[in-house]
Design a protein around this nucleic acid. Structure first.
Lengths: 190, 190
DNA sequence: CCTACCGATCGGTAGG
DNA sequence: CCTACCGATCGGTAGG
């Protein structure tokens, strides 16, 4: 049992914030999870709000990194969209706590942090909007659907996955990502 | 300024629970919103948990009523699905507080209440699964997509609407419901 | 619905 | 990272 690092504290806070919410979590709860006293957490971080911001920033960074990877140049829009979807599925399942806290607790941040996180979220959403727009211009997506509305629909699906998906069930995460991509491209039609 | 009713208290609690969450709301907050003291709320209801259950039960009832209306017999599956979607949009926008609290705070309920609400939720989801299954059997939905996965995707889209939709923007709620239906049926394909 | 409380818990600090 | 706290706020109650 060596001493905890600041990263350990942030990881533990993420788990609690994701499952019980920021307001449903006390510093003593966090301490209990980590095997220390609530007051001992202040040796590692400035306070509860700082902990939340740290967790959420990590969540935002995972999504941003995934978008960067998917946006490699010279590929058709449908491939990029498929990789955006698969990457989002990976982030949500591999970094559940950070992703869920990022998706659900951003409103609790103070003005400055919330603004920064909202901008990151808007940038990420824009990547989806842009690839849909490009796919339509290139004729890969034959319809004339509104790209922003469609991007919101896709993200709504992706952002809820961790709430119901059972990894170990009949369909694995790659099958899930492929199924979502198929739904987005063809709906119930094919 | 006449006296408040139990319904007033529940409505006020719904607004706060929807915007700040159950754990982010104190009885004094609720009192402030209603122009009374936090302790005065106990003249109308047994406690904070009872208030949450009352708000959530109202939310569940709106969705259930919408599903009943959409399920009138002798109609093709695509019409029923379109009405389910339009009804869900109406519930989410006409009863924002109750719907949002129902969708976001059910986990906070005690075991008995949470079980009852989860069952209501499963029944509602089944209505979507069944209409998709029927539409595929009737050939109205030509693909062979998994009905349960698809129902979850549709509900994920619908359950997020109140978070971003601007009533007064370029597209009204009927246009939104029609657009979602079109997306569900054809995806980016048409 | 208010007055006047209650014990418990909250986020956080000083000093080691 | 613990000991020993602090003032503030929490959900809730007795009595009117």
């Amino acid at each position: 049992m060596s001493r905890l690092t600041r990263d350990d504290i942030i990881a533990g806070a993420g788990r609690r914030f994701a499952s019980h919410g920021y307001h449903g979590t006390s510093m003593r709860d966090l301490g209990d999870d980590l095997g220390i006293l609530g007051s001992s957490i202040y040796a590692h971080v400035g306070g509860k709000q700082e902990l939340l911001a740290a967790v959420i920033d990590r969540g935002a960074a995972f999504f941003e990194a995934s978008a960067m990877r998917a946006q490699r140049e010279g590929r058709p829009a449908d491939e990029t969209l498929a990789e955006l979807i698969a990457g989002h599925v990976d982030v949500v399942l591999d970094h559940r706590s950070e992703a869920r806290t990022y998706l659900s607790e951003t409103q609790v941040l103070d003005d400055e942090d919330r603004k920064r996180v909202s901008e990151a979220r808007d940038r990420y959403e824009s990547v989806f909007v842009d690839v849909i727009t490009r796919g339509q211009a290139e004729g890969i997506f034959p319809g004339d659907r509104d790209p922003r509305l469609t991007a919101i629909y896709v993200l709504s699906i992706l952002n809820t996955i961790d709430r119901w998906f059972d990894e170990g069930g009949r369909v694995d995460r790659h099958g899930l990502a492929a199924d979502i991509f198929g739904f987005v491209v063809d709906g119930l039609g094919c």
